[in-house]
């Protein structure tokens, strides 16, 4: 059993908590600002209150100005074509979140270890933090926003809500994108480390599911419910 005040057991609330719908720029309070704007405003306040202490020290060294290099890239994201001109350093994740405002995909570790940034590119799940947007010329990207909407959830999203496959929700978008693509990998016969015989056709056992989802970390430890949600969908499709 999980503890903590943030945990809501009402399934209708889960829809708002899950990374699936996240805030989606939905205003949940009477101040008229979104959670995202609120956090940005808060950060600025903290920065401002820190400023006077700097005045006592020597003038801080000015960082060397860097000249960003730009590259053009055409991406199809959730069915919509986009022509972007980006700093070459922009990862696919940053392009999605900061340029296309698709904030469902999350930046967790930013080094390919946590899986919160998982999106589906040309049918395959990848870590969007470890790839440059410019490397995806002409590619077709599906994010959590493209799988389903709050009014029309993807079956995997429904299963996560039903089985309570999250607590804080930060890893959820990545878990769901990963799970959807993972079931297709099993269907396509892609082997895994959990198979005793590498030449066999894979089946979705508990051990297979855990091995194949090991690239998605849930810091709240909602694994048993995540596994339950995926198994429920796998029962219908594998």
């Amino acid at each position: 059993m999980r503890t903590g005040g943030e945990h809501m057991s009402n399934p209708e609330d889960c829809e708002l908590k899950g990374g699936a719908s996240e805030e989606s720029e939905i205003v949940h309070n009477d101040t008229g600002i979104t959670r995202r704007e609120f956090i940005i405003a808060g950060t600025a306040t903290v920065a401002a209150t820190m400023l006077p202490t700097l005045a006592y020290g020597q003038t801080p060294q000015q960082p060397k100005l860097v000249q960003p290099q730009m590259a053009k890239v055409a991406l199809k994201v959730n069915g919509t074509s986009h022509e972007l001109e980006l700093d070459t350093r922009t990862t696919l994740l940053d392009a999605l979140r900061e340029h296309l405002r698709l904030t469902g995909s999350k930046k967790g570790c930013d080094q390919g270890q946590c899986g919160a940034c998982t999106v589906i590119v040309n049918g395959r799940r990848i870590n969007s933090c470890l790839t440059l947007a410019a490397m995806h010329q002409g590619d077709s990207v599906t994010t959590i926003e493209g799988l389903g909407t709050p009014d029309n959830l993807h079956p995997m999203q429904q299963a996560f809500v039903k089985c309570d496959g999250y607590q804080c929700g930060y890893c959820t978008a990545g878990q769901i994108c990963s799970a959807v693509a993972m079931l297709n990998e099993i269907k396509a016969g892609i082997p895994s480390h959990a198979m005793a015989d590498i030449t066999a056709q894979p089946k979705l056992t508990g051990a297979e599911l855990r091995e194949r989802m090991s690239g998605n970390i849930c810091r709240c430890g909602a694994y048993s419910n995540i596994a339950e949600a995926i198994t429920e969908i796998a029962g219908r499709t594998v």
Binding site: G112, G115, T118, R124, R125, I126, N127, L130, T131, S178, A181, M182, E185, P191, S192, H193, M195, I198, T199, R212, M213, S214, G215, N216
Partner: peptide
């Protein structure tokens, strides 16, 4: 070349192996 398949799936995660 089963040893190669086994070695590959022993490495990294599903997402990383796709890249």
């Amino acid at each position: 070349y089963g040893v190669l398949s086994q070695a590959l799936v022993a490495g990294a995660s599903g997402q990383l192996r796709n890249m």
